Amino acid sequence: MKRELKTLQSREKIMHAAIGEFGRCGYDKASLNAALAESGISKGLVYHYFKNKDELYLSCVKTCFEALTKYLKVKCPETIRSDLRLEEYFDARLRFFTENPLFIRIFYNAVIQPPTHLKADIDVLKKDLDQFNLRLFESALSGLTLRKGISVEDACSYFIAVQEIFHQQYFQDSNGWENENKFIKIHEEKVRKSVDMILYGIAQEERL
């Protein structure tokens, strides 16, 4: 039992140091040697639990995704009215990152600018969050009358496609930003506006 506890504590110590480093520097600029040295963790101990930098980074990404998904599920339960639930969702996302600032860079680095060779692994880790987001979007659709010829499946496919385009465009627009608080507020507002446009369109009224 003592050995298992020591193993858990050692792994948690490594993860804490890694989340701090990836959270401050992102994947490319992270220096694990420096971060681990500051925390008094030997390289040998790290490689006992993690194969390499990639595996450690993916573990941090997984921790971030799981924490965010759990938070959103608590703050946006299915019992909330569909229109209010969507508002709660966006407010909860912003609160989560405000309360967990080290996850900001980890999350957006993984979602918007993932290391190319790790993208497939990140997509797998993000699956639960993606499914939650899709269910939330479907819940919002349930309160609307869709245009003739547009099915829920069509709308969901469009939602997924727009997400991909949005992230690609946003990375181009925000490349080089250093102010994380500004980054997240602007990004989250654009996400909110993007979903609003998908659901309610862009025209205020029909004109002849």
Rank of each mutant, 00 (worst) to 15 (best):
V152T: 09
H117G: 06
F97W: 05
N179A: 15
D83S: 06
H167N: 12
E99S: 01
C156L: 15
E180S: 13
I150T: 14
I150A: 09
Y108I: 12
L84C: 01
V152Q: 01
T145I: 11
Y200K: 11
F90E: 03
F171W: 15
G143D: 14
D173L: 15
L86C: 13
N100G: 02
K193C: 13
N133P: 00
F107N: 00
K182L: 15
I186F: 08
K148S: 06
F96C: 01
A110M: 05
Y89S: 00
C156Y: 05
G201L: 11
G149F: 10
F97N: 04
F107I: 01
F90N: 08
T116H: 12
K119E: 11
K185T: 06
I184V: 11
D123W: 11
K185R: 12
L144S: 05
Y170R: 09
I186E: 12
V152I: 14
L141F: 12
T145D: 09
R85V: 05
L146G: 01
F107M: 10
V111A: 10
R192E: 05
A120Y: 08
K182S: 11
R135V: 06
Q172K: 14
A161Y: 07
R93L: 07
I198S: 05
F103K: 00
K119Q: 07
L118E: 02
A140S: 09
G149T: 02
L136E: 02
S157P: 03
D130C: 12
V195R: 05
E99H: 02
A110H: 08
D196M: 11
S151N: 09
D154E: 03
F103Q: 04
K193H: 08
E189A: 11
K185I: 03
P115H: 14
L118D: 12
R85D: 12
Q131C: 02
P101K: 11
P114V: 08
V162T: 10
T116F: 13
E164K: 15
I112W: 03
V111P: 04
S157M: 14
D128I: 02
P101Q: 04
H167L: 03
A110V: 12
I104G: 07
F97Y: 13
L141R: 01
Q168D: 15
G176N: 09
T116S: 15
L84F: 08
L134S: 01
L146A: 04
R192L: 14
K127P: 00
K193A: 13
S151I: 06
F166S: 03
F183S: 04
Y158S: 06
F96H: 05
K127C: 08
T145G: 01
F103D: 01
